[in-house]
Design a protein around this nucleic acid. Structure first.
Lengths: 241, 241
DNA sequence: TTTACTAATTGATACGGTCCAATTTTTAGA
DNA sequence: TCTAAAAATTGGACCGTATCAATTAGTAAA
């Protein structure tokens, strides 16, 4: 999985950090690391920059590289390993597979908004797939997805009752690797309340996403309404520049 | 502001993209760009990788570098320029300065949670600063911030009625450059409803953040409750690796 | 025309070097 | 002892090169 130099170094450093091998919260300087690992300083830089992006360490020119104190204190919220997903970690936690209940599956003509987002023409059609997702038998999310027929003409009720992304990868060898997400809060409507077992005043978290294939094709527009207790989005933000 | 090579190239490319200079959605290959700009390929790579992170372009090995079709269609949601802030863009949009109304300002002993996040000892004290933020005279956010006295012993009502970050930068020359954010939705409580002018069933977006200084010191813990219509968090996500 | 092999293209990884800028440490002077 | 200048440390920016891997384009054989 990982024979890349910078990844190897990155993982090793992360292990050492987790193992408390830098009690002074300071990493060796880049040149020493370069010597120690017998790799170029560029590779060290790359490894470190990944850890910086993950919020695990930070650098100060002239001074050194330090461990984010919060990372040691509260590792649980620094969930990622290489990826910076961050969405509803409840989902993929511990390999727990959430169940899917298909609510509806039909083909509809394009709407104006969909044309925008999915790059469609007037006479294009899309699948509308509405699903309820359950985690440990509790419903936590209503998902409405729109997929152009042109991209995947072969969807069926069976496929759509499982993971569409997996289907794509295994059969058509197309991968979803990027998405543009938008996150907000909204009052629950009566359907939310019924399906997600919410009280009148309890809201939903709304995540709208546009998913892209390897080749840049917008593949799916998805509207996800989550039980508010199940939505928590964690992210590390660098301000400026 | 921008005399760095890779930034210059980055901005120029972005301008060309926005100006529609690549109608085939394809950028020149890296070697040509290197020639054209008279800079090393490494610098081109760096410039491009920023644009990749921003979701503006994507690369395919062996094939080339392409413009994200959605970026052209819907530039408004790709808001960032160099930064990847993403928080309540309503705030800094068009230089509109949101107003601040100070609700309360006091010094309290540490709580357990604060000790965790701010790296404090038992007998430390913190400022508790509660503020209402208004945008175009409409209240949109209740913000409760906690700042250790040890870090900034000089806060006053006046200071706290303006931007604390600006104060820090201008007087003590400390900068807040990193933060760990957590975003979720929650039902509004009676105070939310009163202050933000919300109906019973209307929720708030809750953003909790820990802000860090340049040197890694956790500087502030902030709990922000936003009128749900004002909270929208956009982000570009790379899946896997 | 189709198929299969080969070339060229193009981005990815990695190396190692130069010079610079911010910071810290050391040294020399008052 | 204290202060200010000098030196060492340390990360940042950039360059240019070599090699590799995925993709596409071109070519020759069936």
């Amino acid at each position: 999985m990982t024979d890349l130099v910078y990844r190897t170094v990155m993982h090793d450093l992360k292990n050492k950090i987790n193992g408390g091998q830098f009690p002074d919260k300071k990493l060796p300087d880049e040149r020493s690391l370069s010597d120690h690992y017998h790799v170029s300083r560029s590779s060290i830089k790359r490894a470190l920059s990944v850890l910086v992006d993950q919020g695990i360490i930070f650098k100060k020119r002239g001074s050194g590289t330090f461990i984010n104190p919060l990372y040691m204190k509260n590792k649980t919220i620094f969930h990622y390993d290489g990826s910076n997903l961050g969405i509803t970690d409840s989902l993929k936690n511990k390999g727990m597979t959430p169940k899917i209940k298909l609510l509806s599956f039909k083909v509809i003509p394009t709407t104006e908004a969909l044309k925008q987002d999915l790059f469609l023409k007037d006479d294009d059609f899309v699948y509308e797939i509405k699903r309820l997702r359950l985690f440990q038998d509790k419903p936590f999310m209503i998902e409405t997805g729109y997929i152009p027929i042109r991209v995947t003409p072969t969807l069926s009720k069976e496929i759509v009752s499982g993971s569409i992304f997996n289907y794509l990868e295994k059969t058509i060898h197309k991968t979803v690797t990027r998405s543009f997400m938008s996150i907000k809060a909204a009052p629950s409507n009566s359907e939310d309340q019924k399906r997600l077992n919410l009280k009148m005043n309890e809201p939903v978290g709304v995540m709208e996403g546009i998913f892209f294939l390897d080749d840049g094709t917008p593949f799916e527009v998805s509207n996800m309404r989550l039980h508010y207790k199940y939505m928590k989005y964690n992210t590390f933000v660098m301000i400026g520049k």
